[in-house]
Each structure stands twice: as C-alpha cells, then as structure tokens.
Nucleic acid binder design. Structure first.
Lengths: 248, 248
DNA sequence: TGCGCAGATTTGTACGGCCAAATGCGCGAG
DNA sequence: CTCGCGCATTTGGCCGTACAAATCTGCGCA
C-alpha cells in the first residue's frame, strides 16, 4: 500500500545538496558557487543536468546567476520567497523563534475542520502551539489532522505533552512519515479578531484584529493532510514575499 | 539610452503564445494541449525547446502535466498562483470588478514614499483609485511613482481625471512605456486600521482593521518604479496563493 | 601611464538522440 | 463477458554538442 519513494533523479539530488549547502551558508555574500563545468565533472553528470538543478534553485530564489560571472547565493534577507512552507520553515530558519506546545495532540470532533480536510467523518486530531521571539508570543497556530495522519505523530513525545523545543515543525515530521511527500499547499490570508483562546495565549484583548493565515497541505495524490490556522500579532509579523517576472 | 529589447528567445516566444492561448481559455477543462512532438513540428523547433517553454508554464501554475496522458490547462480557479501582479491583474481577470479613479495623477511632496522608492528627492507623483464589485467598494489603492515615471502617464486621460473604466492597470501601462520591463515586486501583507481618507471611500469607520498589501515594483536594473498600498475590506477579499513543492 | 582589443571564462539557447516511466487502448485468452 | 497482457502514446530524464552573449583579464600599443 505505502509506496516507497522510487529513485531520486540526478538533478533533484544535486539541487537538494546545493540547497542544503546554501542554507548552511557555505557561500557567503560575494563568493561564487562552483561553475556548471566544475559541478558536471565533480558529480560525473552532464552540464545540462547541472543546469536543470540550478533552474530549480533560481525558481526558489536561493541563487542568482549572471552570464559571464557565475552563480551566487542570494543574500540571507532575500531568501524569503517562493519557498514552500515560508511561514513554518523560513521563520524558524531566519528568525530566532521558539515553539511551545500549548495544547498537545488529541482527538476531537470538529465538523468544520473535517470538512476542510475533505473527510467523511467528523473526527480529527488537533494540536496548538505558540511561537515566541525573545519570550514574547506573537503567533498562535492550531493544526488539524485526519485521524490516520494524526496517529503518525502519536509517538512524538514533544507533541503529546506541553512545552517542547523547536527542533522540528509538524509539516517536517509529516513529510518524513507520510507514504507520499507533501506536494502543495493552499494558503489564504485575511484579517480576523482574536478568539478568547488565542487572545489568552497572545496576551491581547479578545476581538483584537490579527493577521490570519490558513493553510491546507496536500499530498501528491491530492489528499489533504493538514489544516493549519495561524494568528499573528501584526506589529510583530508581516507576511512578505518576493514575486519575480516569468515571461512577457 | 533606452535599449530596445533584443531578440526574444524561441522558448520564451512559445511560452508567451501558449500563455495567451490559455488565458484566452482556448483549452477548456478536460481538453489536452498539443503534445510536445506536435508543437515541436508545428513551430519547427526541437522537443527540448518545447519542454523548456512548458517548464515555465508549469512554474507559473498555468498548466499541469501528467506522464503518459498529456498537458492540461489548470482550471480557472486554480490559476491564482505565482502570477506576477496577482492583486492587480488576476483580480481583474477572474472577478468582475470596476476601477474608479478617486484622486487623479498629481505631483506632491512625500518624504516617506520617496524614501521607499529610493529617490533622492522628496517629490513624487501620486494617484488613488477604488475597486468595486457590484458597485460596492472593497479596495482602496494609492500608487506613488518617481517623477520621471509619473510623467510617462501624464498623457493618459483616464488617470488624470476622476471616473475611469477598467480596461487597464497602472502596472500594465508602465510595463509598456518604461524602457525596461518590470522584473520583480516585493510585497508585504499586514493588518492596518483605516485612515480617514480610506474609511471615507470604503464606507467604514476610521480605525476599522483592514488587510493592507504593500508592493514595490522594480525594473530589471533594480530601480523601484512604483509603490502601491492597497487596503481591503476583509469580508470581501482574502489573499490566496497556492504553493508548490520544489524539491525535497 | 592609459586605452582598447583579443582571448578566456561562464552562463544562455538550441539541437539531436536515447531510454525510462506512466497511461490508455485494444486484442486475445479463458 | 471479463481479465490481463502487450503495444502505442506521451511526458520525464540524461547525455553530448555547438554556438551566442556577457563578463573579466591581461597584453600590447600609443
């Protein structure tokens, strides 16, 4: 039933290795990355394969290429773009935040969340946590999972009891444990008043307007695997993205 | 001084023609686009060139490819993604909106706007308009331009007097008239209270929380050419994006 | 010294070919 | 009639080559 991931193609592997090197900050500002020819020889692949990998990294906004000069990592502060999981992942990477579980993983009945996940039951698993920066809470997130997905996280002690470190994200854990990788997310951004629960955790009055980001993550098969609703204090966070021109 | 665009590469031309055909809705839901082989023969190019064009369209979220089956246009409601100018352009395409100029193009002194445009003067050109759906205003937008850019729009009667049709967008006009095309935009989304001016146009109380989207458009040379600040009534609009997975 | 041109380096575009993987269809066996 | 195998179609991946365009370096000449 659960298909293992078949062999990763060469250019995806190359892109992955370069990506981690860049995120590890192996190539500081003015430093040129290895040239296409160098990488082709080192990895024993054709130059076209190297180019294909770089195409992805350019599309992700991680590198910047100049004809005649070379390839350069984008400066740290310009990397917040087009990345999958920008709210969850990039914030953890670029800003010093902590994540505290305030409502551990538990089963419950929630017709609305179940509907948005496309389930035919009304039972879901739920989990809430806070993000803090300098010990100030600025984001409250609740996550709903289909029961089958929630059970994959039962064995993670940090999610089933309050107070956890920041070493991982829910979506990162799911990506490892699901039979299929997570392929897409649909996101909507709007304004919403703080519910009493959220207000209590963020330390603001109920009804206080917050930036609300909803996300539904989907597997490659189109199955919804996670619904996440985050509320941000707008003084402490704004959603930023860089858009690039495609064609004419 | 003003360089004309040199020859457009083959794959960009192919991508552009396919893009307009898709946006013209030439390929309804289940209809397959021409295959790589067909396009290669029809345009007398190699199959790799066709593939390169499709890569861009996939990255833009306009098409969807399935091994063994073919290439299909994304359904209309899924096309709101990754597109440059999603706020301005896509809204006009997908929803039936009207645009009314409420403050025609005029010169003024604005240190803050000039600073965000990276100018060394404090003089800018400004313009404001409303977006309406079923005669209900739901978005107020103010646009600031460097003086040299603003002068390019002096000759557009619809922008220099109140009450205009919806046939174009500011960014579309600039793209035609600037010596260089617009290459990038940086966008930030947050929550802001309605100023008295905005509240008056949107018919709400001042201080009412709104969804605020700021955009700075930049030319290929890195010059900022437009600053746009939009305020939306959150009941009538939410910002939606679809994020796709790049690599692992 | 200072200027400019020739060549080397590096990325961009385009071609051709080859095989793999996924899908859909039809035909034949049972 | 139904199931399943095999073939045709279509996209995915990879290679090798060739030339163009942009940038940088260094040499030679005035």
């Amino acid at each position: 039933m659960a298909e293992r991931p078949q062999r990763e193609s060469t250019y995806l592997r190359l892109a992955r290795e370069l990506r981690t090197a860049i995120l590890r900050h192996d190539f500081p500002d003015g430093v040129r990355l290895p040239t296409e020819a160098e990488l082709a020889e080192r990895y024993e692949v054709s130059r076209q394969t190297v180019r294909r990998a770089f195409q992805d990294l350019v599309a992700e906004g991680l590198v910047h290429r100049v004809p005649g000069r070379g390839t350069f990592a984008m400066p740290r502060e310009e990397q917040y773009l087009r990345q999958f999981g920008s709210v969850d992942d990039l914030m953890g990477l670029s800003i010093d935040t902590r994540m505290d579980v305030v409502a551990p993983l538990h089963a419950r009945v929630d017709v609305d969340a179940a509907g948005r996940l496309g389930l035919n039951t009304d039972r879901v698993h739920k989990l809430s946590f806070l993000r803090l920066h300098d010990d100030v809470a600025f984001c409250h997130t609740s996550v709903w999972l289909p029961p089958a997905v929630g059970r994959l996280l039962d064995s993670v002690p940090e999610l089933t009891s309050p107070g956890s470190p920041n070493a991982f994200t829910v979506i990162g854990l799911l990506d490892q444990r699901l039979p299929e990788p997570i392929a897409e997310a649909e996101q909507s951004i709007t304004v919403a008043g703080a519910t009493p629960e959220v207000a209590g955790h963020l330390g603001c009055e109920p009804g206080r307007p917050l930036l609300r980001i909803d996300r539904v993550y989907q597997s490659a098969a189109g199955q919804a695997v996670e619904l996440a609703i985050s509320h941000f204090l707008p003084e402490h966070y704004s959603y930023r993205v860089r858009l690039r021109r495609n064609g004419a």
